[in-house]
Design a protein around this nucleic acid. Sequence first.
DNA 1: CACGCAGAGTTCCCTAAGGGAACCCCGACA
DNA 2: TGTCGGGGTTCCCTTAGGGAACTCTGCGTG
Lengths: 150, 150
Amino acid sequence: MQRTKFGEMACSIARTLDVIGGPWSPLILRDVWVGFTRFEQIQADLGISRKVLTERLGHLVECGVIERRPYDRRPRYEYVLTEKGMELVDLLMVMAGWADRWLAGEAGPPVLYRHHACGEISRVDLRCAHCGGPMHAGDVDLLPGPGAAV
Amino acid sequence: MQRTKFGEMACSIARTLDVIGGPWSPLILRDVWVGFTRFEQIQADLGISRKVLTERLGHLVECGVIERRPYDRRPRYEYVLTEKGMELVDLLMVMAGWADRWLAGEAGPPVLYRHHACGEISRVDLRCAHCGGPMHAGDVDLLPGPGAAV
DNA sequence: CACGCAGAGTTCCCTAAGGGAACCCCGACA
DNA sequence: TGTCGGGGTTCCCTTAGGGAACTCTGCGTG
């Protein structure tokens, strides 16, 4: 809902928040991902206000993470993930993985992920794109990059 | 800022949002991560309202992702990441990675990550914890887990 | 011993964003 | 010609964020 616009900061986290920082945006993306692709479906599934849903969908379309396209000769539309959007869903999987580990409690995780390639129930793991070793928050140094401010 | 409380949904994404869904929360965590650990530092760095910062810090402490501890005999406190919090920072790296790829533009990414293990500038890559192969949003099936609703 | 200062919050008011419900528009179909 | 259903608008109300001023607490200094 932010009043302060994060997009202007020289910070990639802030820029991502500018796209999906709205409270509902990640859940909308999840819905589109799992197959709730129409306005009514998303609205009913999330219980979100129609007004806010309209705004959020518009914003996500503007940002190029989903596409709005007609599925009928009547004015009916569905929303589909773009490639940019699919990669945001990767982020959602990491989110889910964190909550599965830290917040699921007795009941266990609400959703399981089966990896196509190996057929096993699994979870995502963060690895270094260069050497393939584990790469977590404690395993890196931060250096100013070319787009750094000042 | 959400009015609707996500924590009750049987959805790990919603549960994560309940912890860091507030507009500023991810940036506060980032600040704590990179070494802005005191109230004044964070407030100055982010330009966030002191009121909201107080609330957000309190919430993050409650959720167990950061710890508040005195660093002086005067009433002075600093905030440090817990293990639970450190793993949330993993999520922030994925966020940053997405924006580095899709939003950095001409200037390039504002921050680079050097992996301790191999010493190279790198980025995080999502792999299957089971087989080690790439694991992205398109590479998985979703199945109801033990904690699924209904 | 009074003063000042700095960190860490409160308090108060204002505005804008979310929630909710009702309303609208358009093309099919009966 | 009426009505149905998807996909939005509009309007009003409430509440959370922004901003600035105020407070409280202990040290450190003259």
